[in-house]
Amino acid sequence: MDTCSVRYSQPMARPLDHAKRAEILDAVVRYIAERGLADLSLRPLAAALGTSSRMLIYYFGTKEELLVQALATHRPDLTAVFADLDDAAALRGRLWDFWRSNTTGTGAVSVRVMLQVLGAACAPHGPYAGYADDAIATFVGTLTAGLRTLETVDEPDVVATLLVSGLRGILQDRLVTGDIERTDRAARRLIDQAVR
């Protein structure tokens, strides 16, 4: 038997199309923001994205990994958001800008999905627990580092936790109730009182 011809007659795996992959990841976040995470199934998702569930598995392995990678592409550069802070007023301004970005700006769609993932991560042995823990730790850690540069902030890690958890709760309130004015006032009050 000619092993050389057998070896070369095997089908080769198709290389990943990185542009298509990026397009899929972006579309996944929009799809879940519109339809929700609870009943997410690969076949309807694939159909809406103009591909097959087999291709989604090929690119991402599992439904959960697909969502985790999609959210990772939408994660803001938190280091840049909280870099070069020199006083409490600058930090309050950055936090307010970040709030606005996550409620009415570029981050609004991914925040809607992120809140659903964080809720699902609360279930014991949930598939998103690792991602959620990492996302929270990154946000709290980055904000803590920014707060440490200000001499006026006591217990930076506690203040960062208060801000991250508090603003996330107010965001969830806003998405559930649709009350923009009250939640904006609450976010502003939290930022102003936490960062003096």
Rank of each mutant, 00 (worst) to 15 (best):
Y58E: 10
A19E: 12
A70H: 05
S5W: 01
V153F: 07
A194F: 04
L66A: 09
G126P: 00
T177I: 06
N102Q: 13
H125Q: 03
G146D: 05
F139G: 05
V81M: 02
G93F: 03
Y128I: 02
V153Y: 09
D2C: 05
A123V: 01
L66M: 07
T3G: 02
L190N: 07
F60G: 04
T152M: 11
C122H: 00
A135R: 09
T144C: 04
P11I: 11
C122Y: 00
T177M: 05
L95P: 02
V153E: 09
G146E: 07
L162V: 12
A132M: 01
G178Y: 09
F139R: 11
D179A: 07
L42S: 14
G93Q: 09
Q69R: 15
D87R: 15
S101F: 13
E64A: 09
P127S: 05
D173K: 11
F82P: 02
L163Y: 02
W96M: 12
V29Y: 05
D184G: 03
A80M: 07
L49I: 06
S53A: 15
P15I: 11
R174K: 12
A83G: 02
R35W: 04
R54E: 10
R43G: 08
G93A: 08
D184M: 04
P76F: 08
D2M: 03
L66I: 11
L143D: 03
A135K: 01
R148L: 08
V158Q: 07
T51E: 10
V29C: 04
I136M: 03
Y58H: 12
F82G: 04
R185M: 08
R75F: 13
A186N: 09
L162A: 11
N102E: 15
T104N: 07
P124M: 00
I32N: 08
R168Y: 09
Y131E: 01
A123H: 00
S165V: 02
F139I: 01
T104F: 14
D133C: 00
L171C: 11
I136E: 00
E34Q: 15
G126K: 00
